[in-house]
Amino acid sequence: MKQSLLAALIAAQAERRAVSLALRLGDGAAFLLPGDPAPEAVIQEAADMRAADRTGTVEIGGESWFIESRNPPPRLILIGAVHISQPLVQIAAAMGFETIIVDPRRAFATDDRFPGTRLMTDWPDDALDQLRPDGRTAIVTLTHDPKLDDPALERALRSDAFYLGSLGSRKTHASRLQRLAEAGFDDTALARIHGPVGLDIAAVTAPEIALSIIAQIVAARRMPARRARAAA
C-alpha cells in the first residue's frame, strides 16, 4: 500500500467521510473511492456496498476486486451524564462507537467525570435536532426524569436511529409509554423503544448494566445482516 493512500484513508476517517478502498486482486492496483478513476461498475458496486456497510471480494467484469467499505464510526447518544454513563462510554469505545453525552444539568456533565467524551449541555430535544440521528446512531435515555427523557424520545422516535433504549423499571417504562401514546405515537413506534433497557443478564452494578445495554445495541446493529444471510 502506498504511503499516500494510507494517509488518505486515515484522513477520510478523521474527517468522518465514508470512503471505499477497491483493490484489483489481479495486479494489486488500489483505488480510493469516490475519487480515483476506477471502472464505472466498480465505483457503483463500491457505493452499494458502502451503503450496506459490507466489505468483501466481488467479481466485476471478469476480475476479482476486494472492496472495503470504510464508514464513519456508529454513534451512541446518551441522554444523562449519570453513573451508568461512565462505564457505558468506555465499553462503547471498545465497540467502536463515538459517544456523545447530553445533559443540561451542568453538575453531572463535567469533563472530570467524562474525560475525552463530547458533552452537550443543551436540552435533549435541541441536542438531538443538532445531532440529527441517522441509521447508524443508537440513543439511550438514562435520566429517569420525564422532563429530560421524554423530549429526547419524541425526537428519537421521529429519527432513523437503529436503536432506542430507555432506563427504568417496568412500571416507569409503562407510564413512559402511556405518556408517549398520549403524545400521538402508535404501538409500532413505541415498540422501537427497548425498555427496561438492556439484555437480561441479571445485571446489578453500573458496569454490568452498561454491558447489558451495549450487548443489546450490538445485537440490534448486527442481527439484521445475519437474518438477511439466513434468508438468502
Binding site: 494510507l6 494517509a7 486515515i10 465497540m95 467502536g96
Partner: peptide
Amino acid sequence: MNDSENILAIAQAWHE
C-alpha cells in the same frame, strides 16, 4: 470500520 482498533493509523505511525 470493522472494529475499534485502528490498524492503518498504527501502520502509518510506525512507517513515519
